[in-house]
């Protein structure tokens, strides 16, 4: 499969497409946390790095199969997500934002000072296992899973918490439990994305998972449209492709990138696809056509 694709396109496009897919998975995780549940997480890159380092170390030292490494990377990130989530969600308000902010820095410093992670020098020699096919299979799986989840009782409970926590609680929803579950799932996706990143770049450095990376992912979600899966996918695509394709304008690249974001936020304050529900649109369109048909049938 990989071989067939590579005959049609060049390795550069494959590389960019792969990294875009990896970010998409991370952004989808944050979409569930921030977009659907309404909890602000500023340390998403930390969960990425946990997944990345866990899976990379497993590949390097244990030689376990790639799929297992992906899963364990994701689970490890989710485990830390739960440990961090329990105390933060017990408080009302945006405390998760503050704790994740701190957590992100702690994780970075720990990785810099650990011997096994190669410290500030970084961890190299990770086998290249990630390819476009694997990445996009997981992207599709994640989108399908999240779509199903959002349209289930669980997803509606999360939305209810986002809109009004007190009202949701009075309807019999346990906000702590639901927020925690949502956060664990979101961080799991971040971990998987990190594991894919590690096996794509083949080199990890704690500095790559700093504060700015967390905000980059948050940008993907916000620009695309909070709470919208197609929005998250579109936001990630635009924001990872823009700097890449704007490379030819050199120093002005970041200027244009910034201007693009400001313009978008002015014209689409809820994100590119914010407030647009493709499912609803499709159903409405069908209903409209049906009613037209019915009308015609009556007239005829």
């Amino acid at each position: 499969m990989e071989a067939i694709i590579s005959t049609f396109t060049n390795p550069y496009y494959l590389q960019v497409a792969s990294i875009m897919g990896v970010y998409m998975i991370a952004a989808l995780g944050l979409h569930l946390i921030t977009g659907v549940t309404g909890q602000f997480s500023f340390g998403h890159a930390a969960f990425l790095s946990i997944g990345a380092y866990t899976s990379a170390l497993m590949s390097l030292y244990l030689g376990t199969p790639f799929i297992l490494n992906l899963l364990v990377g994701g689970l490890m990130a989710a485990l830390w997500g739960v440990l961090l989530g329990i105390p933060s969600f017990k408080l009302t308000g945006d405390y998760l934002g503050i704790t994740t902010l701190g957590f992100g820095e702690i994780v970075k410093v720990v990785f810099i000072n650990m011997k096994i992670t190669g410290g500030a020098g970084g961890l190299g020699g990770i086998p290249r296992e990630t390819n476009v096919v694997v990445v996009y299979s997981i992207v599709v799986l994640a989108i399908w899973g999240l779509y199903r989840l959002q349209n289930s009782r669980f997803g509606r409970a999360l939305l209810a918490i986002r809109e009004d926590e007190i009202a949701a609680e009075s309807m019999g929803i346990n906000p702590l439990l639901y927020k925690l579950k949502g956060f664990a799932l979101g961080t799991f996706l971040a971990g998987v994305s990190g594991a894919l990143y590690a096996h794509l770049m083949q080199y990890l450095n704690p500095a790559d998972f700093g504060f700015s990376r967390s905000f980059e992912i948050l940008n993907f979600v916000v620009l695309g449209g909070l709470g919208s899966i197609p929005g998250t996918v579109l936001g990630t695509s635009v924001l990872t492709l823009a700097p890449e394709f704007l490379r030819f304008v050199r120093e002005y690249r970041m200027l244009i990138y910034g201007a693009l974001m400001v313009t978008m936020m002015i014209f689409r304050p809820y994100g590119l696809l914010g407030g647009i529900d493709f499912g609803k649109m499709f159903r409405r369109y069908r209903a409209q056509r049906k009613s037209m048909k019915d009308k015609k049938a009556v007239q005829g």
């Binding site: 060049n10 390795p11 550069y12 590389q15 960019v16 990143y197 770049m201 450095n205 790559d208």
Partner: peptide, 19 residues
């Protein structure tokens, strides 16, 4: 190939130079 001192972009830039 300018990667803006960003190591995750560097991989893309390297790949691009090779292509």
């Amino acid at each position: 190939g300018d990667h803006g001192s960003n190591s995750s972009e560097a991989a893309n830039v390297t790949q691009k130079l090779i292509t």
